[in-house]
């Protein structure tokens, strides 16, 4: 059966899942056993590793979603194989991005409470991150309500494209408008080898987990569409 064959087509396979799990465990070991405790902030700095890892990957996945939306719109929202794949990948990356965004928006204030003495402050990077998170949440809501309608998909793709410049502004917000957000990575703050290792392992671990989840969701989306199309075809044949 066609749908059965499609099951393993775009899936991540067990190897990537095992690799992602191993990377998370190694990263956790590096964060808690290799990286030393930061002198000023103390133990709370350990939040930083996965918080920044999730933030970087959130931006990567939202960017991918925006690029997918752009390609979908360029292709005129056709029902071809490439357009369908790009559209499915767009939904999957948006979902993973929103999940990572939720992690960032929860772990960030926990760290900020200890580091800045407040849960939340309306500084440029935080405000923009929240807005972009809400934008992609709106994208997913739109997709959920419009289902397989071409118009709804196109509007959602447009929404994802709108998020692209906002992502650029999140990246450069601290440089352009200031704010309390630290620029540890760009200003060369990670000088201790243990901290550097823990940081890069965390970013890699989050990336592998996110990629695995995004590929699973893409596969599911494509399968669901295939099943829907086959149901429609069968119904049409019944009517004949």
């Amino acid at each position: 059966m066609k749908s059965d064959k499609a099951i393993g087509k775009f899936g991540p396979g067990p190897l990537l899942a095992i690799l992602a799990t191993a990377a998370v465990l190694i990263a956790l070991y590096a964060v808690f056993f290799i990286a030393p405790v930061e002198a000023t902030m103390g133990i709370v700095q350990k939040i930083f590793y996965f918080h920044v890892g999730c933030a970087i990957n959130m931006m990567v996945f939202f960017s991918l979603c925006g690029i997918c939306g752009l390609i979908y719109l360029i292709m005129g929202g056709s029902r071809g194989r490439v357009a369908s794949f790009v559209d499915a990948l767009g939904v999957a990356t948006a979902e993973v991005g929103v999940t990572l965004g939720a992690v960032v928006l929860v772990t960030g204030p926990i760290w900020a409470r200890k580091a800045w003495g407040t849960w939340w402050t309306w500084e440029p990077r935080l405000t923009l991150a929240l807005l972009v998170f809400l934008l992609f949440l709106a994208y997913l809501a739109l997709r959920a309500f419009t289902g397989s309608e071409r118009f709804g998909r196109s509007v959602a793709a447009g929404l994802a494209v709108v998020g692209l410049p906002a992502l650029y502004f999140i990246h450069f917000a601290v440089q352009r408008w200031g704010g309390a957000h630290p620029q540890v990575v760009y200003k060369g703050g990670l000088t201790v080898p243990g901290m550097k290792l823990a940081f890069f392992l965390s970013v890699l671990a989050v990336m592998l987990v996110s990629a695995t989840l995004a590929l699973i969701r893409t596969q599911q989306e494509l399968q669901a569409r295939l099943v829907d199309d086959m149901f429609l075809k069968l119904d049409a044949e019944e009517w004949k």
């Binding site: 030393p36 405790v37 930061e38 002198a39 902030m41 103390g42 133990i43 709370v44 350990k46 939040i47 996965f50 918080h51 929860v106 772990t107 926990i110 760290w111 409470r113 200890k114």
Partner: peptide
């Protein structure tokens, strides 16, 4: 190394 901060510990556990 580092300092002992009970509240910080709680924050780290909560975040993870």
């Amino acid at each position: 190394e580092g300092q002992e901060q009970i509240q910080g510990d709680t924050m780290v556990v909560a975040a993870y």
